[in-house]
Design a protein around this nucleic acid. Structure first.
Lengths: 206, 206
DNA sequence: TTCAAAACACTAACCGCTAGTGTTAACGTC
DNA sequence: GACGTTAACACTAGCGGTTAGTGTTTTGAA
């Protein structure tokens, strides 16, 4: 028989984690996020409360189970782009894809649940802050951008803002385009800052 | 006897509120935010826990007692500016002042406490979201800007970002200037958006 | 004087979350 | 195959923030 890439233990752990996440999402969508307690989820998934919290850091994390994707996709859009591809269009493409995926019909109930719960909205906001920070680090580390660290951090925030704003807009895809026109202009302006670029070699950058 | 503008009841209420806030801040600074419980604050202020929560919505709100100022100052910077004053420089001045006030020496201990506590940082982040939204509404309602609602919401976020980023920068005042160069460019670009302005009369705006 | 509203208090509890302490199952190794 | 190590899981208790429910007192007004 073939050698499994994962041992039985890891598979069981992943199964338990998935069972908890699935159970939680089902209960949340059935009865509402606030109406379902951690003890309910644990009982329905047939695990102890402590076990639940060994898999998920918080109740909100049960909803945003796959948020690592977001962070990685953004930083990879920076690091893995073609050597001659400008920065901002690459980010714009990625945000377009993320928004599209997020506004898709199958994600609508989950998104509605998040919007309806202040706790979940706040949690997502702090998630976005983390994403902006890791994107900022990727930008600062990227070669050839010729922008200051402050400019990189600023653009990172702006890009995350674009994602958040677009999702709330009537026409999300059009909003992405409109906001990225502004981001493009901001990025160009940062290249002409009086204090000058401090990151990488000289050049137009991006 | 003269008619007091505020009755005894209102004065007593304000006094109780202030006593709670002062006691809380003192205890937080003495022993650390996480080391002081709500029950400690209530006991020290000589009120019941329920009374404390009738004055403040949460433990974090005890620290950000005066956040209404922030919101009002920003929106007033938009609505109360001279009729011919461009928008972005007015906002830049206000952010400069707010950052200066926030980095001042007497606010340093409080700021350090906030940075040291994840709960407080998260709370402040959600506060900023509210501020961005009210600023966005002020921008959308402002006459003569000739920008789309999406552009207004975007610039509002960018301005709040500038505040947050500048405070974390090595030279906050310089960071405000650098970021506002980018914001100015973004604002101008929004005036030339292909979908065109939808808000207010035609004109350069800002 | 009387009344309604509002501030305040007290009890009791809910809820998210964690520490401490096992118990069981899987893996590596001899 | 026995053995020790590790990690997943369970259970009890409890902490800290927050609220509901139920009065009691103060205050401003009729």
């Amino acid at each position: 028989m073939t050698v499994p890439t994962t041992g039985r233990r890891e598979r069981k752990k992943a199964a338990t984690r998935q069972k908890i996440a699935d159970t939680a999402l089902r209960l949340f969508l059935e009865h509402g996020y606030d109406a379902v307690g951690i003890r309910d989820v644990a009982a329905e998934a047939d695990v102890a409360v402590t076990t639940l919290f060994s898999h998920f850091a918080s109740k909100e994390a049960l909803v945003f189970e796959r948020d690592d994707d977001f962070e990685q996709r953004l930083t990879r859009a920076v690091t893995d782009r073609a050597p001659d591809e400008p920065l901002i269009p690459a980010l714009r493409r990625e945000i377009h894809a993320l928004v599209r995926h997020c506004v898709a019909d199958d994600a609508a109930p989950i998104w509605g649940m998040i919007v309806a719960s202040p706790a979940l909205r706040e949690y997502e906001e702090s998630m976005r802050l983390r994403h902006a920070q890791s994107l900022a680090e990727a930008l600062i580390a990227a070669p050839g951008l010729s922008r200051s660290a402050t400019a990189c951090r600023t653009i990172a925030r702006f890009v995350i803002d674009a994602y958040a704003l677009a999702r709330e807009a009537g026409d999300p895809q059009a909003a992405v385009d409109e906001i990225f026109e502004m981001i493009e202009a901001a990025w160009k302006a940062a290249g002409q800052a009086p204090n000058g670029p401090r990151n990488g070699r000289s050049g137009a950058g991006g």
